[in-house]
């Protein structure tokens, strides 16, 4: 579904990703773990070209995202993204946050869009917040709305960039539960996370990134119990 080939990315002349190769198949739940500054978030952000790599290619269902002829907006409709800092639109209600893309891109009328938004909000347990502004919500609720928003266009894959890192500890579970249900429903997901328990429980595949390179790419069990790399062992010793 997603295919990354020899991807390199530089920030201010410093190389943060080194010729990464990565393939994500339909139905997989891939977690990417690694120390801060390892390049894991950058890698994720390259998958929908929020970061433009200096070299290499990114394919979505065989289409090269870096090809000038590719309609990137159409591709992005099919790739949902959830951010660490939620990035809800503060000038719009919860309902409007979800319906905006439906109305603008799918040309839906109010009642069609609202119905979809309501269904999604029900799915994440926030149907009663439809008319509220994001500023009135807790962090966990905001992130669940953000998930609902990115589900609105019915994406084929969801990218999560440290979705629980900005949350108070007691709100982490409600977000992880929603993500877990998504995975059980068959959603393909790529998750950058520091939640090792979640990575181990829910993921079908675990990737360890350090220094801009993929050091391990295996099952969560293997990664957490028998890491093959010294750097992985050191990292796990610190976080577990």
């Amino acid at each position: 579904m997603l295919n990354v080939k020899k991807l390199s990315k530089y920030f201010h002349g410093k190389q943060v990703l080194h010729e990464i190769d990565l393939e994500i198949k339909e139905g997989e739940i891939v977690t990417i773990i690694g120390p801060s500054g390892s390049g894991k978030s950058t890698l994720l952000r390259c998958l929908n070209l929020l970061e433009i790599p200096e070299s290499g290619d990114v394919f979505f269902e065989g289409i090269n995202l870096l090809d000038a002829k590719t309609n990137l907006n159409e591709i992005r409709e099919q790739i949902g993204m959830v951010f660490q800092s939620f990035n809800l639109f503060p000038n719009k209600t919860v309902g409007e946050n979800i319906t905006l893309a439906l109305k603008l891109l799918k040309k839906m009328n109010d009642s069609q869009a609202n119905e979809i938004a309501m269904n999604l909000l029900t799915r994440v347990g926030l149907a009663d917040k439809f008319n509220m502004y994001p500023s009135k919500l807790s962090g966990g609720q905001k992130q669940r709305v953000a998930i609902a928003r990115s589900l609105a266009l019915n994406p084929k894959v969801m990218l999560f960039d440290e979705p629980t890192s900005a949350l108070d500890p007691e709100m982490v579970t409600e977000v992880l539960d929603v993500m877990k249900e998504l995975g059980e429903a068959g959603m393909t997901m790529v998750i950058v996370t520091h939640e090792m328990g979640f990575a181990r429980q829910v993921a079908s595949r675990a990737i360890f990134v350090d220094g801009g390179k993929i050091l391990e790419d295996t099952t969560p069990d293997q990664l957490f119990t028998h890491p093959s790399h010294q750097r992985t062992k050191e990292f796990l010793a610190k976080v577990l």
Partner: peptide
């Protein structure tokens, strides 16, 4: 916030 533009673009908005 830059995240607002990113959120819009990631939804497929121009």
């Amino acid at each position: 916030e830059i995240g607002q533009m990113e959120a819009g673009r990631s939804l497929g908005l121009s």
